[in-house]
Simulated assay, not measured.
Amino acid sequence: MCKSFRAIDWNVAVSRQPNSYQLYLHTLNPICILSEACLAEKEKEGKDFYIKKAMRLFDSWLNFASTPGLSFGNIFIWGDHTVAGRTFVLLTFLIALHKSAVPVEYLKKVYSVIMFHGEWLRNDYNYTPTNNHGIMQDRALIFLGVLTGNDEWLNHA
């Protein structure tokens, strides 16, 4: 799949039915694991190790997702289930970043991506009412609405 977090193949197919793995990957669950490890770590060196790995992974995904030539056709970047799950991961990541010595500019970058997720979730065009993905979207939007003080998002969900 990759030799480092900087060289991830975000379109990797690890089986004949790669959807579960792609969903897991684009939800950025590995960032959640690294962020939780950072938050649990007592030593600064350990915190730095985990948060730097999470940052490399996030930067790699963001580059992939924002480069149409790389991401074209990948339905997991902006899919209902993926965005809802990734929103929670990014919130955990932001908390871990706040607990680490990360430049303010980086915090702002992650926060802007989170806010973009909120706008995406708020857009009725992206809403999926016919299955539990819509519930996942509502839940993520409620959390974002509460945490950011955005009553429009909260009320919409």
Rank of each mutant, 00 (worst) to 15 (best):
V102L: 03
N131Y: 08
C38P: 02
S20I: 08
M115V: 11
N11Y: 04
W153F: 11
P30D: 12
Y125P: 00
P129N: 10
N150P: 01
L70F: 11
S15P: 06
R6L: 15
T128V: 14
A13M: 09
T87H: 05
E43T: 15
V104C: 03
A140W: 13
G118D: 00
A37I: 01
Y127S: 02
R122G: 06
S20P: 01
N11S: 07
L154V: 03
P30N: 02
N123D: 15
D124R: 10
A157Y: 06
A84R: 12
N29P: 00
N132M: 06
F5C: 07
V12C: 08
W61K: 08
M115N: 09
E41D: 12
V83M: 15
G69V: 08
K53G: 05
N150A: 00
N11V: 03
Y21L: 08
A101P: 00
A101N: 15
H156D: 03
R139Y: 04
I77R: 11
K109V: 02
V89Y: 01
G134Q: 10
N132D: 07
S71Y: 06
L28Q: 09
T67Q: 12
H26D: 09
K52M: 11
H81F: 08
N19M: 03
V12T: 02
I51Y: 09
P18Q: 04
R122F: 11
Y50W: 15
G118W: 12
M136E: 03
Y125T: 10
A54M: 06
G73Y: 03
L25W: 06
K108T: 11
L147H: 07
E45P: 06
W61V: 04
V110H: 11
Y125A: 08
D138Q: 13
A7H: 13
T148C: 08
Y24M: 05
W61M: 05
S60Y: 10
E105C: 06
T148Q: 05
K53A: 15
L121I: 09
F116T: 13
G85V: 00
A37V: 05
E119W: 03
N11Q: 13
A96D: 11
I135S: 11
Y50F: 15
E43D: 14
V14K: 08
D48F: 02
S60A: 14
G145W: 01
E152V: 12
I114F: 05
D59V: 03
D80G: 11
G73F: 03
S100Q: 07
A101L: 12
L57P: 01
S4C: 12
W153G: 02
L28R: 10
A13D: 06
L147P: 00
W120S: 07
G46I: 07
V110C: 02
N11T: 08
I8M: 14
G118Y: 05
R86S: 07
V113W: 07
S100I: 04
D9V: 07
S20M: 02
T82F: 00
I75W: 02
H26G: 14
P30H: 13
Y106P: 00
F88S: 14
A140E: 09
L28W: 09
T87Q: 09
D138I: 12
Y106S: 04
M136F: 11
R56W: 01
L154Y: 14
W120T: 00
I135Y: 05
L25R: 09
C38V: 00
L144M: 11
C2D: 10
